[in-house]
Amino acid sequence: MGKHLTRVRSLFGGDTRGMLDGGRHALLHTRTLEFDELRPYVPGDDVRDIDWKASARSGDVLIKRFVSEKHHKVLLVADTGRDMTALTPSGEAKCDVAGLIAGAIGLITLGRSDEIGMVFGDSRGSVNIRLRRGETHVESMLHRYHDAGSERAASDITCQLHYVATHYRHPLLIVVVSDEPDVDERLADVVSRLSGRHDLLWAMVADRAPTEVGRHGGYDVGTGRPVLATAAADPRVIAAYERAEHRRRQRLAEMLTEHAIPHVRVASSTELRSRVGELTRVRSRAG
Rank of each mutant, 00 (worst) to 15 (best):
42 V>Y: 12
42 V>F: 13
43 P>Y: 09
43 P>H: 13
43 P>R: 13
44 G>P: 05
44 G>E: 06
44 G>L: 09
44 G>C: 08
45 D>C: 08
45 D>I: 07
45 D>R: 11
45 D>S: 09
46 D>I: 02
47 V>W: 11
47 V>I: 15
47 V>S: 13
48 R>D: 00
48 R>A: 10
48 R>V: 02
49 D>E: 07
49 D>N: 14
49 D>C: 04
50 I>H: 06
50 I>W: 04
51 D>C: 05
51 D>M: 12
52 W>Q: 00
52 W>E: 00
53 K>V: 10
53 K>F: 08
53 K>I: 12
53 K>T: 12
54 A>I: 01
54 A>R: 01
54 A>W: 02
54 A>T: 00
55 S>I: 05
55 S>L: 04
56 A>F: 11
56 A>D: 07
56 A>G: 01
56 A>M: 13
56 A>C: 05
58 S>Y: 04
58 S>Q: 09
59 G>Q: 03
59 G>L: 09
59 G>E: 06
59 G>N: 05
60 D>L: 07
60 D>C: 05
60 D>S: 13
61 V>W: 02
62 L>A: 09
63 I>H: 06
63 I>D: 01
63 I>E: 01
63 I>F: 03
63 I>Q: 09
65 R>G: 01
65 R>P: 02
66 F>W: 15
66 F>H: 10
67 V>K: 14
67 V>Y: 09
67 V>M: 09
68 S>Q: 14
69 E>A: 09
69 E>Q: 15
69 E>H: 11
70 K>Q: 11
70 K>L: 05
71 H>Y: 02
71 H>F: 02
71 H>K: 15
71 H>S: 06
71 H>N: 05
72 H>N: 13
72 H>I: 11
72 H>T: 14
72 H>D: 08
73 K>F: 07
73 K>L: 06
73 K>G: 03
73 K>P: 01
73 K>Q: 12
74 V>D: 02
74 V>Y: 03
74 V>W: 10
75 L>M: 15
75 L>Y: 09
75 L>D: 00
76 L>S: 02
76 L>W: 13
76 L>H: 10
76 L>D: 07
77 V>L: 07
77 V>D: 03
77 V>R: 03
77 V>N: 06
77 V>I: 11
78 A>F: 00
79 D>F: 13
79 D>W: 13
79 D>E: 08
80 T>E: 05
80 T>G: 08
80 T>K: 10
80 T>N: 09
80 T>F: 08
81 G>T: 00
81 G>M: 06
81 G>H: 02
81 G>E: 01
82 R>F: 05
82 R>K: 15
82 R>T: 14
83 D>S: 15
83 D>R: 14
83 D>Q: 14
84 M>A: 09
84 M>Y: 10
85 T>D: 13
86 A>E: 04
86 A>M: 06
86 A>G: 13
87 L>G: 03
87 L>R: 14
87 L>Y: 13
87 L>I: 03
87 L>P: 01
88 T>E: 00
88 T>H: 02
89 P>L: 03
89 P>H: 06
90 S>F: 12
90 S>H: 08
90 S>L: 06
90 S>D: 10
91 G>Q: 00
91 G>P: 01
92 E>S: 00
92 E>R: 03
92 E>M: 00
92 E>A: 14
93 A>S: 08
93 A>R: 15
93 A>P: 05
94 K>V: 05
94 K>W: 14
94 K>E: 02
